[in-house]
Design a protein around this nucleic acid. Structure first.
Lengths: 147, 147
DNA sequence: TATGAAAAGTAAACAGG
DNA sequence: CCTGTTTACTTTTCATA
């Protein structure tokens, strides 16, 4: 990726509502030039979208957990993500190399909801679960480019 | 959190560049009313910011890993997040309840860079590491409110 | 891939209920 | 906490290099 594009991506990764005017100032390009570059970055899929960063505690979902899962029957065809996609509490689903096959990140309102969710996950995807409760988040979703 | 606010947060969590005009249409409020509510949500810290969602593969960081860490010396004061904060490859840092003390999410360009990063983490924070490489991401950073 | 300029749309601030 | 209005700014498109 070109230097100017990386700069634009870094800027938008740390403030997704920066105006094209600001981006232009920070990159030395004209407003139209930045505009075109951002559009191209989106077309190429480098920028996949824009999101508000929500404080889940303040939003009523104070409990985050990481759940590693492995299928009961390792010979079954693996459509686990498809089986879990409908559970909106699962905010991330990674296929991983390791003892388990997938790691999920979930957000729930209470231990009780976590308990229910685990049961749902186990029966929906025919898996065993190993749950790690998040106690606190030092940081999250930081830009890997070093701002 | 009130219903209208939850709706606004959900909408912005799925498209962080929605205009106040669009938010007003989708909530039935006036443009000024949504404007004020969004400002208040930011002041209260419910909305912590806005970010571009970057495809890290396309952006040259194709390798993601989850690293669980535990201190060599459990009696030492725990300033691990502070010791790791400067490593920009660490995009998330969770304190967790479990065998290990922290789980990190890292993004790097290559296995070689992961190797270097692991060495840096071990010596910077005086910890042992257990690394789980992410093979693919089914989804990530989804809204937990069910859009 | 860049630029500047024009038209349409939006944000931000404000007065008032 | 809401509404409508105003002003300034921003987005988007276009012609052009």
């Amino acid at each position: 990726m070109e230097d100017l594009d990386r700069r634009i991506v870094t800027l938008l990764a740390s403030d997704g509502r920066l105006s094209f005017t600001d981006l232009a100032r920070d990159t030395g390009l004209s407003v139209s030039a930045v505009h075109q570059r951002v559009r191209r970055l989106q077309e190429r899929g480098v920028i996949k979208g824009f999101r508000a960063v929500v404080d889940h505690e303040a939003a009523g979902l104070p409990l985050t957990a990481l759940i590693s899962i492995a299928p009961f029957d390792a010979s079954a065809p693996d459509d686990i993500p498809d089986r879990l996609r409908g559970l909106h509490q699962i905010v991330a689903c990674y296929s991983v190399a390791g003892e388990e096959n997938y790691v999920l990140k979930v957000r729930v309102a209470s231990p009780r909801e976590l308990e229910d969710l685990l049961a749902t996950i186990r029966s929906a995807a025919a898996v065993t679960t190993r749950t790690t409760v998040v106690l606190s988040t030092a940081w999250e979703d930081r830009s890997p480019f070093g701002d």
